[in-house]
């Protein structure tokens, strides 16, 4: 490149040159061990309390991952938002809104009280595109408000959370939308949600690690001012990141309504918090600049194992929440402590 530098005289020995990169200890390993540990604890309790295996039950494991995949989709989106030092509180509500709108376009003509009687038996791509579009739009609005007005993401997405939920209710005056076509419900059938979740996870894992999009996302979270000085169009990029988070919430809405074979305005209630918890348990820093999709996936699995395990062992639902809250905090404390130790070394 720089002909100038090439011609530099008296090249000193590379005593100062970088040495070969050493393999790094994957940061997700510790959180993965926590996942295994929790699984083993339930395994132990399973034998004590119910005299059967917790892990050696493929049906239960599939069900567990199924439950995780909806929140997992939201968590993948919110992870990217958090890396930019933002937050997205609207994902649960956007899920509901897109579920309602997608479902209303996926009804069969056998049903006499369809939302749009003239728009029944449509090809399956129409409700899917509508659901994704609604999510994308909501995310783009979030991102634009944050990037252009500069108000805190917490406030902007809080507003969207309330409004989108209201809109979902207003859409059918609170009535559930049911009798969906078979081709639509197939999206949520069997292991489809898990496949969708994993494919999306792989896509964004690659996007964050190997593309310009990913580098810019980390750069903005690391130092917004330096990012701008380095020629990154910060506003445009933020809008893209929030739009992607919205799109994934829309996708989660489609999958959730297809799986439940109904669209309901109350869907995804407080899912946004579970999604944030999954990201944070997985090592994403709320201070920005740090976080990986692999961690988030493991974080989501931890939430799933806990929910499934507690039910299996027969712990009261209220106590489940108490313990879940504790584990979220403890996971982050351990992670922070570990990072500090690694730095000091």
């Amino acid at each position: 490149m720089n002909a100038i530098l090439e011609s530099k005289p008296e090249e000193k020995k590379p005593a100062t040159a970088p040495v070969k990169s050493r393999r790094r200890f994957p940061t997700e390993l510790s959180i993965f061990l926590v996942l295994i540990g929790i699984g083993l604890v339930f395994e132990l309790f399973g034998w004590i309390v119910r005299d059967q295996s917790f892990l050696m039950n493929s049906q239960r494991l599939v069900l567990m991952i199924l439950q995780v995949s909806i929140i997992g989709l939201l968590a993948i989106g919110v992870t990217q938002v958090i890396i930019t030092t933002g937050i997205d509180l609207s994902s649960g509500s956007v899920l509901a809104l897109s579920a309602m709108i997608a479902a209303s376009l996926a009804q069969t003509s056998d049903f006499s009280r369809a939302v749009f009687p003239s728009l029944t038996d449509l090809p399956v791509w129409i409700p899917v595109v509508a659901g994704l579009g609604v999510g994308l739009l909501a995310g783009a609005i979030n991102g634009s408000i944050i990037a252009i007005t500069g108000i805190p993401p917490f406030i902007a997405t809080l507003g969207m959370m309330v409004s989108a939920r209201g809109l979902a209710r207003y859409y059918t005056e609170g009535q559930p939308v049911s009798m969906l076509s078979d081709s639509y419900t197939a999206i949520g059938h069997g292991a489809m949600p898990v496949i969708i979740f994993l494919v999306v996870a792989v896509i964004f894992h690659i996007a964050l690690r190997y593309t310009k999009y990913g580098k810019y996302t980390y750069a903005i979270g690391g130092n917004m001012q330096a990012a701008r000085t380095s020629g990154i169009n910060v506003k445009r990029h933020l809008i893209i990141v929030y739009s992607i988070a919205g799109l994934l919430a829309g996708l989660a809405g489609v999958v959730a309504s297809a799986r439940a074979a109904t669209g309901q305005a109350g869907m995804g209630m407080s899912y946004e918090l579970d999604a944030i918890a999954a990201a944070v348990i997985g090592g994403t820093s709320l201070a920005g600049g740090v976080g990986r999709i692999t961690g988030t996936v493991i974080g989501a699995l931890i939430l799933g194992v806990m929910a499934s395990g507690f039910t299996f062992v027969g712990v009261d639902a209220y106590i489940q929440d108490i313990i879940k809250g504790l584990i979220i905090v403890v996971a982050v404390v351990i992670d922070q402590y570990r990072n500090k130790k690694q730095r000091k070394r």
Partner: peptide, 21 residues
């Protein structure tokens, strides 16, 4: 510190940021 470094990123990522396009 204020407008140059990406403190939590590597040397490589700090150097490459302006030429990524």
């Amino acid at each position: 510190k204020l407008s140059g470094l990406f403190p939590c990123l590597s040397v490589l990522e700090n150097m490459e940021m302006a030429v990524l396009p």
